[in-house]
Design a protein around this nucleic acid. Structure first.
Lengths: 242, 242
DNA sequence: GTCTATATAGGGATAGAC
DNA sequence: GTCTATCCCTATATAGAC
């Protein structure tokens, strides 16, 4: 609640130069960075422009000099997310390396979602408020769906997977649901730490959540696999069982 | 946006009696009913006590005579949900009837979640705001998890399913994720109807969403099934393919 | 670019008359 | 039980000085 006396350095650049122009650019960046942190930590709806300004020790007026309104901040953060999330998994070579690639790809996706997890926490309100965001998000989802379907068919064609088209379609939807909502689901269980020293960082241990998410998605795919792919996947999964 | 001139009759009782006592009880019920409708339609965060009072053509003061605050309304709705959702699936007899039972059980669950879907739309904020709600929700989830695990082991013991303990555990988590978030996920795609006549009911066609949800959950379970159970499940699924 | 001060609006909630 | 009137608080956003 009370603003930290020694705020965390949210600036992305490590060697700031003190010209006015660069200071402006830095403030703009700092607003985006601290907004992302606060949105993720507290939920976008619970973070006011005042909180953001407080955390940066700047005035609300200054914040509104850099951004017309709160939605514009969200828009910029979403655009960053969209750029980072839009990568496709590699093509299938052999079954074993396909599983390794898939594992790494999923981990990369979960890292991005974690980085912008505030978007997923109340997707519904966020997208309802802004139809542009909604259509962009649907495009992202569409790409992911196609990627899963293409990968599955590729695995089928090299006899690493056995599944017909309807099964693959249903699998793809389930992969998207679990990927999109796993972090939310895990968060339901988290009990809030009762007290925290001002200025101390949040201990969230993200890596654990990400790995569990990857594991759950792999568990969706595993039962359709055959031969080497299945063996190799089980090997990968075994390393991550608690 | 503009309040309907001929509001929908949200009262649960069909033959109201005009005594003061029963009128009070009816108003209380009507507040709960209209709150549920508005929360589901617009999202709890977007519905004010003023909206609720408007829709019922009562004063804000009157609303606050019946409920201390908005959270108390939410609490009552949650309690109703908790009562309705807490049923367990039947025991396993033979493989074929087990699939039928499972299908019906899932449909029942999705009906309840649909009825109180506002709870799931921003679960995170709702549970963060109120730790009592959070612990109750975790109890519900825990029961469901146990039910899925018990059912799976029962299916394994009658040779209708092949899966080891870690697979069953992962399956149970995925069943919960997909069940909890399927309606949210589908809603992401819905394009808002541009205009709606005041007072006209929302056309959401719930049945379609529920059936698709059940289908997706069955698709999670299907690859682990064997013999009659698998055959019968495929038969059930085939009837619901679009 | 940044600040202080302030306008504006909306929502939650209460007091007191009827 | 219900209404009207109102208070209070918080959040967004702007104006104008520095």
């Amino acid at each position: 609640m009370s603003p930290s006396k020694q705020p965390i350095n949210y600036s992305a650049t490590s060697a700031p130069v003190a010209t006015n122009a660069s200071r402006s650019a830095r403030t703009r960046e700092r607003i985006l960075n601290v907004s992302l942190h606060l949105f993720n930590a507290l939920g976008e709806a619970n973070v006011t422009t005042g909180h953001i300004a407080d955390e940066l020790n700047i005035s609300p007026g200054n914040l509104y000099y850099h951004f017309r309104n709160k939605d514009e901040i969200i828009h910029h953060l979403f655009a960053d997310f969209e750029k980072k999330i839009d990568v496709a998994p590699g093509n299938i070579a052999d079954a074993a390396s396909a599983m390794e690639d898939l594992w790494l790809y999923l981990h990369l996706m979960f890292e991005r979602i974690w980085e912008y997890r505030f978007l997923y926490r109340n997707l519904d309100d966020l997208l309802a408020r802004d139809s542009k965001l909604k259509s962009h998000f649907n495009i992202i989802i569409g790409h992911k769906r196609e990627a899963v379907i293409a990968m599955s068919h590729a695995l089928v064609s090299v006899k690493a997977m056995r599944a017909d088209a309807p099964e693959i379609k249903a699998l793809a939807e389930n992969v998207l649901v679990v990927s999109s909502y796993w972090l939310n689901y895990e968060h339901l269980r988290v009990v809030k730490t009762p007290s925290r020293l001002p200025g101390s960082p949040h201990h969230e241990d993200p890596e654990k959540h990400l790995t569990r998410g990857v594991y759950q998605v792999m568990a969706l795919i595993a039962p359709f696999l055959e031969g080497d792919a299945r063996t190799h996947l089980n090997y990968l999964k075994a390393n991550y069982l608690e």
